[in-house]
Amino acid sequence: MSVITHRTVKTNGIHLHIAEAGQGPLVLLLHGWPESWYSWRHQLPALAAAGYHVVAPDVRGYGQSDKPWEIEAYSMKQLLADCTGLLDALGEKTAVIVGHDWGAAMAWTSAALHPERYRAVVGMSVPHLGRAPMPPTQLFQQMFQDTWLYILYFQQPGVAEAEFEADIPKALRTIFAGPPGYDPMSPIVRAKKRSDGYLTGLDAPATLPAWLTEEDLAYFVKEFSGSGFRSGLNRYRNMDRDWHELPELATTKIHQPALFVIGEQDPGRAFAPIEPMKALVPHLREPVIVPGALHWVQQERPAEVNAALLAFLKGLPT
């Protein structure tokens, strides 16, 4: 089995911690919220064994990477510059970019705006929907009206941080393994009042699902005990800024080979449909819908996800 090694690299004026394995063409793996490089623990050795140089950073604000304080430091423009700078630091002209959750948004946007650096793209759990017709927070207020929505709850600095950091082990246990508080269609979420928090009405399960061991959870808890939640939440606070800063996403298509992977039971399927993506990503392969998986698809079903990734990678032009 390929050994995962760790180091720190400088990019875009900050330091990123990266986990890496293998040698060969570069595959960049980007995690989402609230995660870390560790979310790719099953993919790193599998892709390395197949002949790829696999790199999974702690995205800025997470784990052992730098954590700028300013909200605007987490704009999509800054995150994209981190990625291209990481390629430069690794001495690579191009890579296949793979992302999950917010990492998927980073991957899609990177492929759209820097096609010369990314020869193919894979998004997991979050499809590419281009540019919204209005700033996202306004759109969500229109769409969900009186329904509590986690994205809107996350907008006020300090509020969600205080809730999660009051008991980090319980918060992460609930987010990963409890009822999905990110599902606006859930009866639990629909019953919430505007003043409620993310964890209101959600129970932390006594027993974890098979895909997440107590040791896995302890790793995430350790990382967030060191970093806190502010930086990761600041990504949500840049959604409107991104809309203003990246108007080109309204018309730019992704022409590289592309793959979308999502869990069969991911609540996002209800309000972020796949079909509109096909016009924006003309070379999208047949989407992979992973049976039985929820949102944390590459952790929940690593064998199926690894198989999908390797089939996609092996089918790319050399």
Rank of each mutant, 00 (worst) to 15 (best):
E245H: 08
Q256F: 12
K93Y: 14
M76G: 11
P157G: 09
P34S: 00
G91D: 08
L47G: 05
W211P: 07
G103F: 04
G61D: 11
P257M: 09
W108E: 00
K193E: 10
F154R: 11
F271P: 08
A81F: 08
A177W: 07
T137Y: 12
E300P: 04
A105V: 15
V297L: 06
T137D: 15
P317N: 15
R285L: 09
A210D: 06
D82C: 01
P291I: 02
P291Q: 01
R301L: 03
I151C: 04
A19I: 01
A250P: 06
K170W: 13
M76R: 12
D58Q: 13
D58Y: 11
L80A: 05
A258Q: 03
K170M: 12
R190I: 00
H100V: 05
N234Q: 11
R301E: 10
P273H: 00
A250R: 10
Q256M: 11
D196M: 02
P127Q: 07
T252L: 04
Y118P: 04
P187I: 00
G263C: 06
N234T: 12
Q142I: 04
R41L: 06
P127W: 11
P169G: 06
G158T: 11
A272E: 13
A307Q: 13
V27A: 00
W37I: 02
V59R: 09
P133G: 14
L309Q: 05
N234D: 11
D66F: 05
M143F: 12
A48F: 05
I97S: 00
H114S: 14
D167M: 08
W211M: 04
R60K: 02
F224A: 02
G226Q: 13
D196G: 02
W102N: 10
G61K: 09
R7V: 09
M277E: 11
Y62E: 08
L30E: 03
R117M: 06
Y62M: 10
A162N: 08
H295C: 04
V305F: 00
W243R: 03
W148P: 03
E116L: 10
A307V: 04
V27G: 00
G197M: 08
T252P: 01
F260N: 03
A293G: 08
E275D: 10
Y182L: 10
M143N: 13
L113K: 05
T5L: 12
I289M: 08
G91V: 09
L233N: 00
L16K: 06
G51I: 01
A107N: 02
A111L: 06
Y219M: 15
Q155D: 07
G228D: 08
L313K: 02
